[in-house]
Design a protein around this nucleic acid. Structure first.
Lengths: 272, 272
DNA sequence: TTGCTCCTCACGTCACGTGAGGTGGC
DNA sequence: TTGCTCCTCACGTCACGTGAGGTGGC
């Protein structure tokens, strides 16, 4: 018996923990897994036997696909909390996987349907109108919650004694997705007088000409809805028009009662 | 009407396709999506309207998580073939997701069980023995298939008139996983005479002392089996021993009839 | 002396994001 | 002239892999 080695070299430790030397040096430099001792003479990293447990835990979490930053946040928690943290993180991963899966279903539709559903494009002139609006920066995850602000807006309008003159709409001043956050503006057109209140603002939406396509409630679902946007853009391109304001969705149907295959919204681009 | 613009600038094209300028320049440099025209004066990229379809297709595939290299392989196929290619690729993604999910279940076990299952470590002396072996480099996906070679080995041994003297074993000369491929060696110990045949070889497995732990059939499943390896390694470390040959799995039970909770294999490290 | 392990740069991978510094058209 | 868009580097991100060039112990 050569005598108990209290320390393992990076190679031995790596083999036992199933980590490469490069990975171990990286974890060292990040402070995620620092060797118990470093030989002052030659700089050799020496790991204690009881560091194997932490190393194996890191390997497991990396195997799940967790980033080193997230691992660093969780690794020092007690087991129960660590598990809760991992579960919370995993729920997010599952969501991402689900949305990829539904994108695949959509792609199947696009590829096997061959010819994409026809969207009929119309144009119309819209006169100047006063609107009560609420504008906010929201990522796609918060978009549903933002739409729940609509009843509050409507209530303010009605309690002011003003009269709603058309359907509600949402104007997208910038892209909204996982990283981009609009801004998005909810609008109610009205006549009469409404006072601004908190985030609620009043402005004039200028007169303009717009191209739009009417879609069903089912077609409002992401990513299907993108086809409608693409169709209107395509029409503008083909006809040599330039969009000259942010695109908008106009919700003319009663969302609670409208059927999936009934017209529910217009996808609209102002143009010149 | 300003006249139909046949070409879109990179900014306009990017907005309509939902791609950044940086992404479009990258796709250009990769030859994945080359602008229809480049202004020779100022180097401006000009995209044709009908390039939007390809761009949107790339966006969809990137949204699924497909690499640009894979997209480049598939994008020029007819729709039906593209769809088949995407599906084949997606099956692989689903498998990966499934294995992550099962790793999570394993992690839950580790964290909530608290104390990891006890593994009892034994030692024994193994005399020198002749073995009929088949050695091959296999990635983890091919490991199951490799084990199916065992009956062939056994048949050769029996048809040579030699006598099997112990259980079959698999020696892991190197790690086996998604990227590493062993090698792995299947061994049958025997007495008598066997001629080498094709890939089948005969060699002497030297006498040695070994530490092992006996596990059930259920415990052989990945990643649970890693605990048994870790337990034997831990014992070697604690007792100041050095492993001095590749680890091996000894299958002493009849795999077809042994119950999930019955002893089925030894996880073994030769040591000095 | 040869082989093996360890060390520290430094560059490559992948799909971009983010300036930096400069040009061109309205 | 100001703003906007475009251009080409070049560096940063993330978690390493892969040499390059050198050292140290058996």
């Amino acid at each position: 018996m050569a005598g108990t080695n209290a320390y393992l070299t990076i190679g031995e430790f790596g083999r036992q923990a199933r980590l490469s030397g490069k990975a171990l040096r990286l974890y060292d430099s990040l402070g995620l897994l620092v060797p118990a001792r470093v030989d002052p003479g030659n700089g050799y990293r020496l790991y204690a036997l009881d560091q194997l447990a932490r190393a194996r835990r890191i390997v497991l979490l990396r195997g799940l696909g967790m980033s080193l930053a997230t691992i660093a946040e969780l690794i020092d928690l007690p087991d129960a909390d660590l598990y809760d943290g991992v579960r919370a993180w995993w729920r997010h991963e599952e969501h991402q996987h689900e949305s990829r899966r539904s994108l695949l279903a959509y792609l199947q539709n696009v590829l096997t349907e061959g010819t994409t559903t026809m969207y009929e494009i119309q144009t119309r002139d819209v006169p100047e109108q006063k609107v009560l609006t609420l504008q906010r920066r929201v990522l796609v995850d918060a978009l549903g919650g933002f739409f729940d602000e609509m009843p509050g807006l409507l209530k303010h309008l009605e309690s002011s004694g003003a009269e709603l003159t058309g359907p509600a709409m949402a104007i997208y001043h910038g892209p909204v997705n996982e990283e981009a956050d609009g801004p998005v503006e909810l609008c109610l057109p009205f006549i009469g007088t409404v006072e601004p209140l908190g985030e609620y603002a009043i402005r004039i939406e200028p007169a303009h000409r717009e191209a739009y396509t009417r879609i069903t409630k089912a077609q409002v679902a992401f990513p299907k809805i993108l086809e409608a946007y693409d169709a209107v853009q395509h029409w503008l391109n083909e006809n040599g028009h330039q969009m000259n304001a942010s695109p908008r969705e106009i919700y003319f149907a009663d969302w609670a009662t409208v059927g999936d295959d009934e017209p529910a919204a217009d996808i609209t681009y102002p143009f010149s």
